[in-house]
């Protein structure tokens, strides 16, 4: 009996040690986990401006782990994207499974509007997580442009470290192995 109580308390203490606080004030994904090989709607949450200044543009750089990118237009915002040709050769046949076009969006920009610091908003794109991904977490660097100043959410933790130690971590999602 006594022993069981001890282990219960131990469990409690360990739980407190491990449970992370989830109060994120960074630009981050609404999605926490994605499955390799699946097509996912990625939702970027912008919780505030840059040190009080309203957001006027959001630039997203898409890493090679993501393919078949389709950004969602946002009323009031100008949507532009930068396309990179000939990624097919490097990435293999996987891309062509869906339509077979060789061009791939590598950068998305929503601009020419204003998101006040006091408000939050979501920016959405759809992408396929490559089935061949070997990483356990995908980082998507984001640059937040404001009326005054720019916030670069582009820091990627070194191997063995967590994003928690960074000041401006790139938004990320964890990858689960696919079917």
């Amino acid at each position: 009996m006594k022993n069981r109580k001890f282990s219960l308390q131990t469990l409690l203490a360990t739980a407190v040690l491990i449970v992370p606080f989830c109060a994120q004030a960074h630009v981050s994904f609404d999605n926490k986990e994605v499955k390799a090989g699946s097509t996912v709607k990625f939702v970027l949450v912008v919780p505030h401006g840059c040190a009080g200044s309203p957001t006027i543009a959001l630039k997203v750089a898409l890493p090679p782990e993501l393919a078949e990118i389709k950004p969602q237009p946002k009323p009031g915002w100008l949507l532009t994207s930068k396309v990179e040709e000939k990624r097919v050769a490097a990435a293999g046949a996987e891309i062509d499974a869906h339509g077979g076009h060789g061009a791939e969006i590598r950068e998305i920009t929503w601009s020419e509007s204003k998101l006040e610091d006091a408000h939050f908003d979501e920016f959405v794109f759809r992408a396929k997580v490559r089935g061949s991904v070997t990483v356990s977490e995908i980082f998507v660097p984001v640059v937040q442009q404001c009326e005054s100043g720019t916030q670069r959410w582009i820091e990627v933790p070194q191997s063995g470290r967590t994003a928690d130690e960074l000041k401006y971590p790139a938004p990320s999602v964890k990858v689960r192995p696919g079917p």
């Binding site: 203490a13 407190v16 040690l17 449970v19 992370p20 994120q24 130690e165 000041k167 971590p169």
Partner: peptide, 10 residues
Amino acid sequence: GLMLSTSTVR
């Protein structure tokens, strides 16, 4: 634990 976890939120 509280100390560690609060310090993880930058």
